[in-house]
Design a protein around this nucleic acid. Sequence first.
DNA 1: ACCTAATCGAGACGGTACGTCTGGTCTTTAG
DNA 2: CTAAAGACCAGACGTACCGTCTCGATTAGGT
Lengths: 217, 217, 217, 217
Amino acid sequence: MCRRHPLPPGAAGRSGRPGRPRSAAADTAILEATRAALVELGWSKLSMGDVATRAGVAKTTLYRRWAGKSELVVDAVAVLFDELELPDRGSLAADVEGVVRQFAALLERPEAKTALMAVVAESTRDEPLRERIRASIVDRQKRLVVEGRARAQARGELPVTADDRSGAAGAADDLVFDVIAGTVVHRALVSGQPVDGEWIRRFTALLLGGLGAAAHG
Amino acid sequence: MCRRHPLPPGAAGRSGRPGRPRSAAADTAILEATRAALVELGWSKLSMGDVATRAGVAKTTLYRRWAGKSELVVDAVAVLFDELELPDRGSLAADVEGVVRQFAALLERPEAKTALMAVVAESTRDEPLRERIRASIVDRQKRLVVEGRARAQARGELPVTADDRSGAAGAADDLVFDVIAGTVVHRALVSGQPVDGEWIRRFTALLLGGLGAAAHG
Amino acid sequence: MCRRHPLPPGAAGRSGRPGRPRSAAADTAILEATRAALVELGWSKLSMGDVATRAGVAKTTLYRRWAGKSELVVDAVAVLFDELELPDRGSLAADVEGVVRQFAALLERPEAKTALMAVVAESTRDEPLRERIRASIVDRQKRLVVEGRARAQARGELPVTADDRSGAAGAADDLVFDVIAGTVVHRALVSGQPVDGEWIRRFTALLLGGLGAAAHG
Amino acid sequence: MCRRHPLPPGAAGRSGRPGRPRSAAADTAILEATRAALVELGWSKLSMGDVATRAGVAKTTLYRRWAGKSELVVDAVAVLFDELELPDRGSLAADVEGVVRQFAALLERPEAKTALMAVVAESTRDEPLRERIRASIVDRQKRLVVEGRARAQARGELPVTADDRSGAAGAADDLVFDVIAGTVVHRALVSGQPVDGEWIRRFTALLLGGLGAAAHG
DNA sequence: ACCTAATCGAGACGGTACGTCTGGTCTTTAG
DNA sequence: CTAAAGACCAGACGTACCGTCTCGATTAGGT
């Protein structure tokens, strides 16, 4: 944990540090305030001072813990993406449809959509920020792909390849992840069209068709 | 044309309007200055005043024509996306690979990637801006999908459906467009991994497999 | 007349000048609009563009005729000061009281007081403007002092000096003018206290006492 | 003191206030910079941003302390008027001539004359500003009149009235103050003629004659 | 019961950019 | 040559945030 600003690596959560310890309640209040401000104001009109006021905290406290708006927002919204789950729905198609539906629902929440695109935009000129986004948001969700694939293989819906056995299936999973996440984001935020049942079925059919063809070819 | 700020809809380019006409040279200079500033500074540090200075133009001239930073940047980068082409490479696979490669190259240009994600982020809270992005950037590139499909159908690589004959193939084309554009953007800007030959081949295979399966199923 | 901007001295009101003649109605409308704007907005918030709009005239027309805000306002308010009169009230004391009362009434008009002090302030760094104020406003009112003195001498209230006979009484008249105008302005605009009957009587008594003492000393 | 912008009246200079205290050095630097700018540029071309730059201070610091240009300039020039003194020159006439000479010298300083008339002009539409001018500049100089009268009475040059004994001599002092200040300002700034020895003697004679006549009448 | 040291709130600080408003000028077409 | 219209450059306006700083006041552990 501890994606905080100072608190130099050595002295992390150690309780024996001298001086007054940081308030844990402040952290919670700040992140909640950030999400609330995102909903009300969106990314571009959200200001650090406003977040501090909402959280009942001094600006200094904010900057002591996060380096800037982007870092704060990444932490504030990361938890939203961890809510995604992959219950076993009985078939690969059902599993894919379920996760797409969940992801689309998430992208309808204003704090998620405005924050996600904005921090990605910022990260195009800020490599550490991109890393932070990857670590906090993106890579954590690859588990859904890995789990879905494993489950489909267990069901016999997908073949087990040499790569899988050697643990090097990353490239294939990455591709599937980019296709699902990218396509849904593009549909919802760029094309601005609804991610409804009809579209989800068509997309799932396309994806599974591709996976099946790849398995046979 | 005229995606400009005032110039009330009725009285557009008419030459008989009273008063001094708007300088056409200023338009060109402003859009060029905007792109240059995007390259140097990125979206978040680009300022209207700086663009005006670079363009040798007063700030008022800028605000007379564009309502804000987002609108200006959309116009400035829209032209970049119009450079995408779809020369006949002999097969659907080659056509897809070619357009993906072109699109990835475009997303490596700093003015394109920083601007694209940022204006999409802004558009999540600004419906008119979203429309402007769609009209100026997104929808214009759907021609590539339509043209590619038609060419593949002419080659016999894809079947001609009833929808195509009735001209209602929109939904299928939209899906393919979201998949291609979304996946490439996600790979390049979110995952932050290279869009190289190997990946392009895998992605194209997946997509074409999906299209083929859809055709047969 | 012609305290205007261009219209070079030679070619003044000549009717045989080539081209469209200047509209006389515009002059009237502009000066009236200026006075109206002074009443509503005061000096500092009065703008040339606003005056032009109120007068139904283009800004160019304004600048063709007046060099700037100060010059325009001087012309606009000069006429107000010409309304001061000195009817024969039977005695020097009554004449002085009458003119003081009139002047105080004038200084209660918002366009007069805001304009007068402002153009004087501007004139501290603008010699031509000071001259214009003197010519258009100040010196024109010295007639009141000259006339009052002559009438008092005719009544025998004041002695006739050698200076009067030689026509060199300017210095004495100037002093009286500065005392009256300066004192009333200071009372009304700086001290901000009412110029009422009681005060006027006291002031008149002081002034006439001083004149009488000078006559005897 | 504390003619500042916020700093709510109750919590004035208290040291126990929370937060970083205001820099006293900034105050000095700002007022000096304001006077310097007045000398160089005059009232109308003086800008808040320029004053801030000269003082090595941020614009926000300026606006945190003064509500606008007028308030700032009043504070900046008020100190100049406090330099006026009334040393005992042995007679009322000499005292009056002395103070007139000092006042005229002050009105030759560009920062004093341009500022004085301009803020009075502004105050014609701004009652709080008028009060501030009165409190900071005008009323403070009435001490000169009060002191001069008391000294003349002590010398036996002027009679002691019932009003003096009851401490209600305000009206008479106010009148003398308006006459002296108003007349000198009008001579210097409106008539634009020199306040030289000759004129001062004439004016003093007139004033003292009036006072003497009032005493006897 | 002190001491040390980092925290907390508050709010002032130097900056930068904002978007608007004027001031004056220039460039049109129309009379 | 003037008029109305309106675009043009220049630059001040007052505001909002930024991220830093300086305060006095807490709030712990370590002594």
